[in-house]
Design a protein around this nucleic acid. Structure first.
Lengths: 237, 237
DNA sequence: AGGTAACTTGCAGCAACTGCACTTTAGAGT
DNA sequence: ACTCTAAAGTGCAGTTGCTGCAAGTTACCT
């Protein structure tokens, strides 16, 4: 993404460039939205409330976010990191499943995201499943891209012994199927993770807002992959 | 719920029992909604329009359906058929994957549904993915039940050589994971199917509303299972 | 300093949805 | 057949999410 290409002619240490301001208000509003939902419940939070809390007009709110929910679950549309995508295709063909999972789980939590906001949002997801579903739905928007990547990877590892059109079509089907199945697994992971987080939150007293032992994405990823491996060996016997 | 236990004292061939009427108007409104969306586009169909078309007041509409979308995608909450559930658990442990898939794909299209309405709705799903997502989301509501069933099935086939608590927990994890993964596969199937249907619809002229060669649920199910089998043998090598 | 385009905002309005109070009607008892 | 009651249908008023338009305000460039 190259965060600040600064195409401006003069690019000194300006105090408040336009984009900075935009990002700033975006996160400010999102924080307001999330914390308001947490403390008053979804139904008792109106857009107007979020607005006054964030110091913007309602009209501006809807310039920033398409919907009220978008402010809560996050404005940024989930996308795939170019580099990771490249790495994914280039990797050796053996550990496909875990690789796909990794790729998928990395489109959710974006890089430089506000830590507090992130965990709060997670708690919101735990409380209001519909919102999480919406988030998952947004993730499925990139299904096509993922499928393409999986297809490329499959083609790479199979290049040696098959190159017919039929095979290509077949592999495309595989890619699609695999992607959807793995998306389901990601959903499982997300649920597990949220549950785990909720538990630790519940266990620790209110004052303990410091970092508890969050299971780490990589950890639960490994666990899931292992479980998946052991599970999938069953049906074929 | 044993569809017509008729707890009434007098249960002769009454012309229009209360429930009959309710079901009747329900389907009437749903038909109006779906066909209106098809001919005018989602955004150009208001609840008021659907109401006047169906001869009910708006207030009544919202007594029948929770939301506008509910009228379009169908009011009936997807549930699992008791008998099928029983059969699923009782089945031999070998063909788990296809069985789960079958079970899942049968919670969508309900038994005695209006044929025309069904296919029209499918076309709507093709046109407006958000609606299909909503439908899928409703399906995921029964995740817990499915998971339980899968768990029971797993336990049955594994009963011989393991009964520890740890094993039970493990199997529960498996069940959950499997359910979510298979839900993803169902999503894949649904998409494939809709695509196929759209194609045939596009090919046939407008007047040809008779039954074309719809791929049949069982057919595409078999194909999917086969593909799944062949695909899953890859990652483990 | 001045100008232009982007950002912000108020306002007016539509559509989804809800609570409340009232009428209508189906179904049970007599 | 008549009544009585509870359920179902309806009108109305109000809230909330969201949009278009026409201004005002601000940032940035020359």
């Amino acid at each position: 993404m190259a965060d600040t290409p600064t195409p401006r002619t003069t690019a000194p240490a300006r105090s408040q460039t336009r984009e900075d301001k935009h990002r700033e208000t975006t996160v400010r509003v999102e924080r307001s939205a999330v914390s308001l939902v947490l403390e008053r419940g979804f139904d008792n939070v109106t857009v107007d409330l979020i607005c006054s809390q964030s110091g913007i007009s309602q009209r501006t709110f809807f310039n920033y976010f398409k919907t009220k929910n978008a402010a809560i679950i996050g404005a940024e549309a989930p996308t795939i990191d170019e580099n990771r995508a490249r790495a994914f295709i280039a990797a050796t063909g053996d550990d496909l499943l875990p690789d796909v999972l990794t790729l998928l789980s990395e489109i959710g939590p974006r890089a430089g995201i506000d830590e507090q906001l992130f965990t709060d949002r997670l708690r919101v997801f735990g409380l209001y499943p519909e919102l999480m579903h919406e988030q998952m739905e947004r993730m499925t928007r990139v299904t096509a891209e993922i499928t393409e990547l999986v297809y490329l990877r499959l083609s790479r590892s199979a290049a040696a012994h098959s190159a017919g059109d039929a095979d290509a079509a077949f592999r495309h089907g595989q890619a699609e199927l695999l992607t959807h199945a793995m998306l389901g697994v990601v959903r499982y992971m997300a649920l597990q993770w949220i549950q785990g987080n909720d538990a630790t939150v519940g266990a620790g007293a209110d004052h303990d807002k410091s970092r508890v032992d969050t299971p780490t994405l990589t950890e639960s990823l490994h666990r899931t992959v292992e479980l998946l491996r052991r599970t999938l060996s069953i049906p074929g016997r």
